[in-house]
Design a protein around this nucleic acid. Structure first.
Lengths: 163, 163
DNA sequence: GAAGATTGAGTGGTCAATCTTC
DNA sequence: GAAGATTGACCACTCAATCTTC
């Protein structure tokens, strides 16, 4: 009732958002672990699989995931070692290298995805009425586009303008 | 158009949620760093400040934050070293110990919060129409309550039933 | 025996510095 | 000189084991 900053409704809103995502991530990680994938590795494989030719420059992976470039190097090191991804030199710019998802990587993804989608449905999308979900996603899109302008037209959310 | 799992709309929805939160967290961390606080340290201070007597058992901090108990021990170690928190033995159960926010901790929080709230407003709550925000939060609450049943009646979101 | 907290070992990330290529 | 990728040093977390108290 005073100027009690720690009970501000904005904190509440942000807490709700963070707790929802954190809780979902916790649910997912168990299933991913069954398939020997860390969450970040799953994200990388997914982003590669969604990209043309299944490949992406290290730098682009960095901006898309929000991991530093050195962090990306380590993740790709692991995925490369496990044969889920391989590196490929860029023909036009010899500074750049591509991470390319391998057949093994794709099949690993296909092994994980059905269960993963079921979990998203069970804990997130399936719990909301269709219009309620739409409203939620519309709001999220506004925030996402503001806070990650680069990802706007981009990747894990095509927002495809009806080609 | 086939059974293309990697383009499933549920992935899109989840990606939107994750990217929004990740993007927001990135914006916040810079401001927190100006006040020498890691995001997790800020969260702990906030949860303590919101709790009766500004204290919480280590275990409860663990479940509320989603960090392991050993993780909590380390965070409290740092905050204790910096004088923002102190440990206090539980009188009724000598296994438990409380983390208690200090005056220094509270003033640090008060120093950070105005800017933090402004950022939440700038990048999240302020970008949505009031009813759009309400719809978003309603959806999030459904998910949060499902995925973190313990936190339901709890903490960073009082959801106070109008006492 | 179980719950609460801590500790040692291991891991996955960051930051700053480096190397190569543009 | 700047961009792209990597490396070494460092740090914060987790996991499993331990200690104490219930």
């Amino acid at each position: 009732v005073t100027e009690d900053l720690i009970h501000d409704e904005r904190i509440t809103a942000m807490g709700l958002l963070a707790e929802a995502v954190g809780g979902l991530a916790a649910r997912f990680s168990a299933q991913l672990a069954e398939h020997d994938l860390a969450p970040v590795e799953f994200e990388v494989l997914l982003r590669l699989a969604r990209s043309p030719d299944g490949q992406l420059r290290m730098t682009d992976l960095s901006t898309q995931t929000g991991i530093t470039t050195s962090g990306v190097t380590r993740v790709i090191d692991r995925l490369d070692r496990d044969g889920l991804v391989c590196r490929q030199a860029c023909p036009t710019d010899r500074r750049s290298s591509y991470a390319v998802i391998t057949a093994r990587g794709r099949s690993r993804l296909e092994a994980v995805l059905p269960g993963h989608l079921a979990l998203i449905d069970e804990w997130f999308t399936g719990r909301l009425q269709p219009d309620q979900l739409t409203a939620l996603l519309d709001g999220l899109r506004v925030v996402r586009d503001a806070v990650r302008p680069d990802a706007a037209a981009n990747e894990l959310d095509p927002a495809a303008p009806e080609s």
